[in-house]
Design a protein around this nucleic acid. Structure first.
Lengths: 230, 230
DNA sequence: GCAAAAGTGTTAACTTTACACCCATGT
DNA sequence: ACATGGGTGTAAAGTTAACACTTTTGC
């Protein structure tokens, strides 16, 4: 680069918005910061990106280091670059987001940058470091938008789930009420759910049939131009 | 920042994908580079961003300097950060995109970085500098996706347009055929087009009635939860 | 036996699709 | 008078929305 570093060099970070669903509510993975700038505050798991590392890989690395999570299938969300978003200088941040099954992972930060990592219900998110509340809002918008026209709800549930669990998920994330019969008819009509010969256990009422999402089947249908909605 | 510059400092740029529609086909605004790295090649109008400038403002500034265009209502598209995307070092680029009325603007670069600026039909885009072909593809995907469920086609047409012009636009961008009667019924049923007391001029056949898009009306309907599709 | 959630069909309203001819204007 | 695109309605098919009771299970 022929320009003076002071004019054009910037610092880049990545922040990850990881959603999970548990006990009937949507949660976000947050860390408690153990370092300068907003020390002690909750924040998204994010950090600076190395200049020899691709963004997507950087996102995975940072997520792993701060929370112990691997293989989260991160997707780029938006880039935030207001000049004053970081108190210690200009840092442009590329936000990534992902949906995961909470129970599949154990949280344990690998570096001291994060004091701890925790799942916080979306409705109870405190004031976060930097502009992280804005980033979470953007991710929520995206999640809600996508949930309506891509079958991604399954990524938040355990592998086997009941139709009621799935309906609860839609209702609580999209903040809408859905008719039970119509919901079942519709979701089953897409033909990408496989009914298992298995039922719920340890419930104090009639046990529901369990299903799993057949991703291969969905991709086939998707290629044929069938498009999911709600 | 407490880190060594060499580990974490990056250079970042903004690249703009500006779409226009003219003579029945979708076009992209490209410049011919007059500077090092891919000199002489066509490229998206993009440049480095100053460290004291917000991303959105940087996008407008760069677009203006390289093409003379102002007020293009730019929207952030995606951030591209592969380590090898720029031959002279690492440059992360934030891509923006916009739809404009070609005829409303005159192209004239304000700085020597661009030798010239030109509208190139999407079907005839040559090999571009850097990863700009990939960026254009991403913008096209976004445009096509958005065109189906947001009434943005009007941004590409002149203020007054006929329904056939609008239909042509949809058909040629989405690469689909639409039934004329059904199209008219549907688009008029949304009630955000205003029929003008005016007809086409200088056509060698029956002149079509002209309409304009009533943005305020659309926003009102949008707030009420009416959602546009196709 | 009761509390709690699972499971199940039908009808009316609405939306989408398919389809073909006459009209106005310029040459 | 002909070529070019403008303009218009209806019916069948498909989709969505509204709606309530019976079944299973654990306590």
């Amino acid at each position: 680069m022929k320009h003076k570093p002071t004019d054009y060099d910037n610092t880049f970070s990545i922040d990850n918005v990881i959603f999970g669903f548990d006990e009937g509510s949507l949660k976000v993975l947050l860390i408690e910061r153990a370092e300068e700038a907003f020390i002690g505050k909750m924040a998204l798991p994010g950090n600076l990106v190395r200049h020899d590392e691709n963004l997507d890989l950087g996102a995975s690395r940072i997520l792993y280091e701060l929370t112990g999570l691997k293989d989260a299938h991160l997707e780029q969300l938006y880039t935030f670059g207001d000049i004053n978003r970081h108190p210690l200088g200009r840092v442009i941040t590329v936000a990534y987001y992902s949906l995961i099954r909470i129970k599949k992972y154990k949280l344990q930060p690998k570096i001291s940058f994060a004091k701890r990592a925790a799942w916080i219900p979306v409705a109870e998110i405190p004031q976060l470091a930097f502009d992280h509340n804005v980033i979470v809002e953007k991710a929520l918008d995206r999640l809600r938008g996508k949930l309506r026209y891509k079958p991604i709800g399954f990524e938040l549930l355990s592998e086997k789930f009941s139709l009621s669990q799935l309906q609860d998920l839609y209702e609580s994330i999209l903040l809408i009420a859905i008719d039970k019969r119509n919901f079942r008819k519709k979701i089953l009509s897409y033909d990408f759910l496989i009914a298992l010969n298995e039922k719920q256990k340890d419930v104090s009422h009639r046990a529901a049939k369990l299903y799993r999402f057949d991703k291969k089947r969905y991709e086939l249908l998707d290629k044929k131009g069938i498009n999911f909605e709600l």
